[in-house]
Simulated scan of single mutants.
Amino acid sequence: MLERNWRNRYGELDLIAVDGSVLVIVEVKTRASKVFDDPAHAVTPLKLARMRRLTQLWLAGHREQWWSEIRFDVVSVQLDSRHPAAVERATVRHHRGVFE
């Protein structure tokens, strides 16, 4: 992992990581309610556009590094609504390449 909770005045990127020669930008969504079947559905096109803009800003400060491509992922964590503190009951899903 390169960075966690990278922030500037325009927003935040949850995780910035590398998978081989691929830069991976990860949005983490955690929910205890069942409003969405999967918390990843809470990542809207507007949020994805913001992630892309923030990634451009992050890249501007890291011109010395090079990646063959950039991938946008979502990690969704669905907590048990009756026992949200019981992390062992959580369902975790990794959605790769949600935005090209």
Rank of each mutant, 00 (worst) to 15 (best):
A90K: 03
R89V: 08
A40M: 03
F99D: 00
D38V: 11
W58C: 05
F99R: 02
R50E: 15
H83E: 12
T44G: 10
K29L: 12
Q56T: 05
V22C: 15
H62P: 07
N5C: 14
I25Q: 02
N5F: 08
Q78R: 05
F99N: 11
V18C: 12
V35A: 06
H95Q: 05
P45V: 14
A42I: 02
V18T: 14
D37W: 10
D73I: 00
V43I: 09
V22L: 08
I16W: 00
S68W: 06
V18P: 01
E27D: 07
Y10P: 03
A17V: 05
E3L: 01
Y10A: 11
D80S: 10
V75L: 06
S21H: 07
V22G: 06
T55R: 01
Y10T: 10
S76Y: 05
L15F: 14
E88M: 05
D19Y: 13
A42S: 13
M1T: 12
P84Y: 02
Q56R: 08
R63W: 10
K34R: 04
A40N: 03
E69G: 04
Y10F: 14
R4M: 10
Q78W: 05
W6F: 02
R31Y: 09
F72L: 14
G97C: 13
N5W: 15
G11Q: 14
E88W: 11
R31Q: 15
H94W: 07
V22S: 15
F36A: 12
E100G: 12
K29A: 07
M51L: 15
I16N: 03
R52I: 13
L15Q: 08
V77P: 08
G61S: 09
T30N: 08
R82Y: 11
Q56V: 04
D19F: 14
F99T: 03
V98A: 00
V22H: 13
A17E: 02
R53N: 09
Q56F: 11
M51K: 05
S68N: 08
R89F: 10
D80G: 08
A17C: 05
D38P: 08
F72C: 07
G11T: 09
S76K: 02
V74Y: 07
H62Q: 03
K29W: 03
L57R: 07
Q78A: 06
R7Q: 06
V98W: 00
E3W: 04
E100Y: 09
V77Y: 03
R93V: 11
G20R: 02
R53M: 11
L46E: 10
R50T: 14
P39I: 05
W58L: 01
K34I: 08
T30V: 13
V24F: 04
R96H: 13
S81G: 04
E88C: 13
F36K: 06
V28E: 02
G61L: 06
T91I: 05
H95K: 04
H41S: 15
V75C: 09
V35T: 12
V75H: 01
S81Q: 05
S81Y: 03
R31V: 04
